[in-house]
Design a protein around this nucleic acid. Structure first.
Lengths: 341, 341
DNA sequence: CTGAAAGCGCTAACAA
DNA sequence: TTGTTAGCGCTTTCAG
């Protein structure tokens, strides 16, 4: 049970002052080459490494980013988390994870308070919204908050999202062009801006074409609820009375729906029903699904998130960044017949 | 940019000493009801919360667990991470994430050093092995190390795994009983104990029956490599020259293999080939795959992991816990015809 | 460039 | 039960 080596021990060993040791391990400090050499070799010999916590206490910078995630069911998040953590790590920051078990605002209240206790340098909220009061408190504490894959106008915090509305439109247009007459929408959790914006995009595409939504059910981004919603949507056996296309608010629900359509209802995709999703998670590309979807570019989103977080750590400037989201055409949705000239 | 409230300010406001404030926020301390009341109301009024970092520095307990993960592609890990974080959170601990980008030992060296800088109360290695030298250094630092889903005899650290060998045996027996003659094995990364043990289980079942492995290729637990390995395994078109059963070292590879078998080679599952995997990740239960597999009970594994971690924080006692892993029979593998009496 | 000295916010003896 | 007094290991003025 050997104790940890401190800067004082290194100082003694190197025959310099303790502050000299500190300077050697502080990037922008002024130290002579001789001192650096002495200290480095002493540190090496003793196996010294600065105590991050002590440093954090006095400097006020913990180099810790508090991350709140609510559910990792949607495979978009593990991927994003991996990239985020790696990117932050490269900048000398690390992610402290907090699971938001409920959608309850009260729970987030506790969680944010807890995060603040760690003197984090920033808070990242993934798929979670917050009250403007809570946002204000974070600002008061001098801690920047960034929303990942959620946007919110009222709270006065930065956000990074895909162009969900634009993506929804593209998908809607694709379905319309293919000649679909009865488009159904499988909604996500209504509290999510992603859900709202994607649906708004679809609806705008429909109304531009003078069309209207044929049916709508809520799946709440949840596996089982998505299955049940699909069953309700396709309860009518008569082809003319059921949807001929299904727009799911995310890939995860689209996949659940496809399984229900094929294995429970015996429908063919896309012959009987076209299905489209949103996210482009890995399973969407698996041949069994080959889902037409909108890609959320996790790499770009993460890049901007890290920049916003680290940028805001010095200067506060609320920004809403929207990443372009390309349409990925696969085989789960029928296409328009190429027009002949 | 209001500054954070300190215990001293609360003390003044409440008309007590600073240490009284500290005691009120320390679970086992002796304070009178009167003092508690005064301090609590002052704290409330000022919005005081103890600084975790300062507390960590002096007490030596940071209540932070360093977690090293290498890849979240395998959907077993996000699930485990979610449960782990939630369970630890309930005990007042939090997870600081470190991504191990490479399998390189050198990189782990750096990462562990970095973790130690945070004065963590424990280190959790998920799907990562470590050198015994590294393990010794952690022990020297008084930090317990627990391996999750990996086991290692030499390093002298605790580990939590499923009964991979037993699981491999069960799957092997199932395949044998169904009358399979040409069983192929799609191996994971050879450095992983899970890979080794699962294969050993399969081989022991085979040799017990006087059978032998028909073919073997390495997929390294990787999407693309698994696909390529499958193509090599089934390169011979003649049914008698190709495997009639495929045992993949994990579900993720089994799923990739199924897609190649069906969509590239036009084989039927399980009519032409039986496929089995290991983990029971969510997609294994999706009707499109309906994969026969061995369930890794993430809930139980996490439970034991948390116990081992928190237990070892006080008393050092290396233990290797192996969780029972049940066979989940679905339709991707043929079954033995029920024997008639 | 370097050492001395003053804390960062808190816990933990130690007396009282 | 309480207040007083030392620090935890480090960064950061401030003289020199």
């Amino acid at each position: 049970m050997s104790e940890r080596v401190t800067s004082l021990q290194v100082a003694k060993h190197a025959g310099v002052s303790q502050s000299a040791v500190s300077r050697v391990f502080t990037p922008g400090a002024s130290v002579s080459a001789r001192t650096i050499a002495k200290v480095r070799s002493a540190a090496e010999a003793l196996g010294y490494r600065p105590n991050v916590l002590a440093r954090a206490m006095v400097s006020g910078k913990s180099h810790i980013i508090g991350l709140v995630v609510s559910y990792l069911d949607n495979y978009f998040y593990p991927d994003a988390l991996e990239r985020l953590s790696t990117a932050l790590q490269a900048k000398g920051y690390h992610v402290l994870v907090f699971m938001a078990t409920q959608n309850s605002e009260d729970s987030l209240e506790h969680i944010v308070a807890e995060i603040l206790d760690y003197q984090v340098d920033g808070i990242l909220l993934a798929s979670v919204a917050l009250s403007s009061d809570l946002a204000r408190r974070c600002q008061a504490a001098g801690v920047p908050v960034v929303l990942f894959n959620r946007s919110q106008d009222d709270a006065g915090v930065s956000s990074i999202t895909s162009d969900n509305m634009g993506g929804g439109r593209k998908l809607g247009q694709l379905l319309l062009e293919a000649g679909h007459q009865r488009i159904a929408y499988l909604a996500g959790w209504e509290g999510a801006s992603t859900q709202r914006d994607r649906e708004a995009g679809l609806r705008s595409a429909l109304s531009d074409a003078g069309a209207t939504l044929f049916a709508r059910e809520v799946g709440n981004f949840d596996t089982e609820q998505a299955r049940e919603a699909t069953r309700r949507l396709f309860a009518h056996a008569a082809p003319a009375q059921r949807p001929d296309a299904l727009f799911a608010a995310n890939d995860h629900m689209a996949i659940m729906a496809m399984d229900v359509l094929r294995f429970e209802l015996g429908l063919r995709i896309p012959d009987d029903v076209s299905v489209v999703g949103f996210d482009d998670v890995p399973p969407a590309a698996w041949p069994s699904y080959d889902l037409t979807t909108i890609r959320q570019r996790a790499d770009t989103m993460v890049e901007h998130t890290v920049a916003a977080l680290l940028h805001n750590i010095t200067q506060a400037a609320v920004q809403h960044i929207q990443i372009d989201a390309p349409l990925i055409i696969r085989s789960s949705a029928r296409l328009a017949r190429p027009s002949k000239h």
